[in-house]
Simulated assay, not measured.
Amino acid sequence: MPQSNIQTLSIIQPDDWHLHLRDGDVLQSTASQAAKQFRRAIIMPNLRPPVTTTEAAQQYRKRILDALPGNTNFEPLMTLYLTDNTPPEEIRKAKESGIVHGVKLYPAGATTNSDAGVTSLDRCIPTLEEMQKQGIPLLMHGEVTDPSIDIFDREAVFIDKVLIPLRKKLPDLKIVFEHITTKAAAEYVTEADGYIGATVTPHHLLFNRNSLFVGGIRPHYYCLPILKREENRQALLKAVTHKNSRFFAGTDSAPHAKGAKENACGCAGCYTASHAIELYVQAFEEVGELEKLEWFTSINGPKFYNLPVNRNKITLVKEEWKIPDELPFGHEKVIPLMAGESIHWKLK
């Protein structure tokens, strides 16, 4: 892997535009770890039960803030979970609240806690029209769930079957194509007209699908959308390092207790909230583009969401350190991505 001669890197403090914190007793660890890295984060609503109303979002936000140490200025940016029955009135309430910054589309059955998700976007048109009117972005988990479609093709099929028809019907609806993983998605977001952005995770920038099987099945590299071929990883790296303002950081850090990952039917999700910015730096350094990092981590996201860029800065130093073997997760443990392995950038 290419190494740069840069020893210290100072950038505007980043935001995470796609983060899972979960709920309950795990919040004290997940929220605190994310707050050490990021100033703000878009919080995913796929709890049990899901966050489907503005009132539920307000209550969840309070639980997150209550779980943080007193000297923390981390700001959770809340979202609603779109269902077949979300009424347009709820979108108006969300806009008026000032705390809801997006509505999340989970195609039913696509990923963790998505069973209450949308079965057909045709059922949601009045609500989506209200979102377009209010300027609230639709955050899309971009995969079809048809079991006859190969898991590695579901993102590309989603573009043709869902995304393009929706954007023709509602051309002024702001859309975030979440955690994109393919060359097809990177090219679509780069070339499409209108209001569209995309988040990219550190693990999809650093790893391809071979990483799932190095020395055996590696459950802590299993996520949805699943890791793809190397050509797709290279396409993502090209997209995020070309100062295209449509791409921004979204870790999709998704913690599961160790036992829920390491079993016969392990959960999908990579846990990166504790060291995500270091992973992003490593990815950008790999392709010799560290000077482009700040746009991706700290500027493009606020621009898309019409929020101010953070004022404070963070510093990373070239220093090798080992990612912990495990981290606290309520009364259990969570295994971070690359647990026990060395990484050569460290947040100061």
Results as ranks from 00 to 15, higher is better:
L173E: 09
S274N: 10
N208M: 06
P225Q: 03
K258P: 15
K168P: 15
H256W: 09
E191N: 10
A260Q: 15
E230M: 11
S211Y: 08
L279W: 11
S245K: 02
L227V: 12
R209P: 04
C267P: 13
Y222H: 04
Y222L: 09
T182R: 02
I180M: 00
G197A: 03
F247K: 00
K169Q: 13
Y188P: 11
K243P: 08
K169M: 15
K228M: 10
S245Q: 12
G215W: 10
V200T: 01
T201M: 00
H204P: 06
L212G: 02
N208D: 15
N263M: 13
E278R: 07
A276K: 09
E191T: 13
H242C: 14
C270K: 04
L170S: 04
A239S: 04
R209T: 07
R233V: 06
K174G: 08
L173I: 14
G194M: 13
T251Q: 11
I175C: 06
P219W: 12
V214K: 07
H242M: 14
H204K: 04
A186F: 05
N210W: 08
Y271I: 08
E230F: 08
P202V: 03
G269I: 06
A249R: 00
V240K: 01
R233L: 15
V189A: 00
E278M: 05
V189D: 05
Y222G: 11
G259T: 14
F207R: 00
P171R: 05
P219I: 07
V200Q: 03
A254M: 03
Y188I: 09
A254S: 10
A264M: 13
S274A: 13
K228A: 01
C267T: 13
H220M: 03
T182A: 01
R246F: 00
L212V: 10
A249L: 06
A273P: 05
G197S: 04
A185E: 06
R209A: 08
L206A: 12
I196A: 00
F248K: 01
G194N: 05
E278G: 05
I175E: 05
Y195E: 15
G259H: 15
I226G: 07
R233Q: 05
K168H: 05
Y222A: 06
H275C: 12
Q234T: 13
S253W: 01
E262T: 08
S211Q: 14
K168A: 13
A257P: 14
T190M: 10
V189W: 03
T190G: 06
I217N: 08
T190Y: 04
K174N: 15
V176E: 02
E278D: 02
Y188V: 07
T181R: 11
N208Q: 12
R233I: 01
K243N: 11
E278N: 04
C267E: 15
G266Y: 11
A184T: 07
E178G: 00
T181C: 13
S253A: 14
E230S: 10
F213S: 11
V176S: 03
K261D: 12
K261H: 07
